[in-house]
């Protein structure tokens, strides 16, 4: 009997501006209709802890400020570079903080992947061009492919060549 793999993908951010990148990617991923994958949305990193217990793999999708809009970075937790990055958060608990807390509480699955898409400057409402739509779709497809490989037992790890990541 094959084991049911429970995977959760969480977009972090909100519905507005570049903060929406994580949500939009996960929305797009949801439309792909992959089996056994729960697509969820979090406004604060602490919400990750509400959804990560008892699952097999966790994917977080967030936005970052960077020079190359649309570039997608993939990191595997734990990684010191993730902690070293400057994260913004509400009330002192950022993404690495939430993951460290979940680790201490034994709540994290063995596989935690963080996807971060670069965005240059402010992305205001109405500025979601077709280029951005393409970037979002490409990112969602890439995450979907990666997850498919993980299912086959080929845990995928690669970090894009870029400064700081």
């Amino acid at each position: 009997m094959s084991r049911v793999i429970r995977r959760v993908v969480i977009g972090i951010g909100s519905a507005h501006g570049q903060d929406a990148i994580g949500w939009r990617i996960v929305e797009c991923l949801g439309r792909l209709g992959i089996d056994d994958v729960a697509c969820e949305f979090a406004r604060t990193p602490l919400e990750i802890l509400d959804r990560c217990e008892g699952i097999d793999s966790l994917h977080l999708v967030d936005a970052c400020i960077g020079p190359e809009s649309g570039r997608l970075h993939q990191l595997q937790w734990p990684d010191e570079r993730i902690v070293a990055l400057r994260w913004t958060s509400t009330h002192g608990i950022d993404v690495p903080g939430a993951l460290q807390l979940a680790t201490e509480l034994g709540m994290l699955p063995t596989s935690v992947t963080i996807w971060v898409m670069e965005c240059e400057g402010n992305l205001i409402e109405g500025a979601w061009s077709s280029a951005w739509t393409q970037r979002i779709e490409t990112a969602a497809n890439r995450i979907a492919r990666t997850k498919a490989r993980a299912v086959r037992g080929e845990i995928f790890y690669r970090c894009d060549r870029t400064s700081g990541l």
Partner: peptide
């Protein structure tokens, strides 16, 4: 809180 969680999970 992370340190606290180590001691009082």
């Amino acid at each position: 809180a992370i340190e606290l969680a180590k001691r009082f999970p």
